[in-house]
Amino acid sequence: MSPAALRNVPFREKTAWVMAAILAAGSAIYLNMVISASRALGQTAPPVVGFVIAYFVVIVIASVLFMSALAAASPKEANTPADEREKIIGDKAGNWSGYVMVVPALGALWHYAVNTDGNMLFHLVFLSLMLGQISDYVFQIVLYRQAS
């Protein structure tokens, strides 16, 4: 994308790209950790509270750093509240991402009902939350692309 084209990208779409990338990277690291630990144990690895807390801390710090950089690059846009079109996009994306979150969460409950594997229930619910949040940003990007 050329610098001129990048200037035409709405500030909130840029933040959605950044947040989707941060969350996707964090989720990939989390999944990799769970899969590796589960393979080593020969069963579903139990949740490691320290890692979950570290996950949130890293996500928050990375978000603050990247958002600050974006805001510094476009201070006027960053200080402007969302307009009517951006609010609609945010509402739609939030609504659709709710469905994305519910499907794996129901799958997690079903899996627990059948296998009574509490560790897997934790990981699947955590995955549902991550997917829901990532899809929220992905839907925002799609909607911004459609209406720009």
């Binding site: 035409n8 709405p10 500030f11 846009e77 402007t80 307009d83 009517e84 079109r85 951006e86 720009s148």
Partner: peptide, 10 residues
């Protein structure tokens, strides 16, 4: 009108 330039473009 109190919207973003991208909204005017849209």
């Amino acid at each position: 009108i109190g919207v973003t330039r991208q909204t005017v473009i849209a």
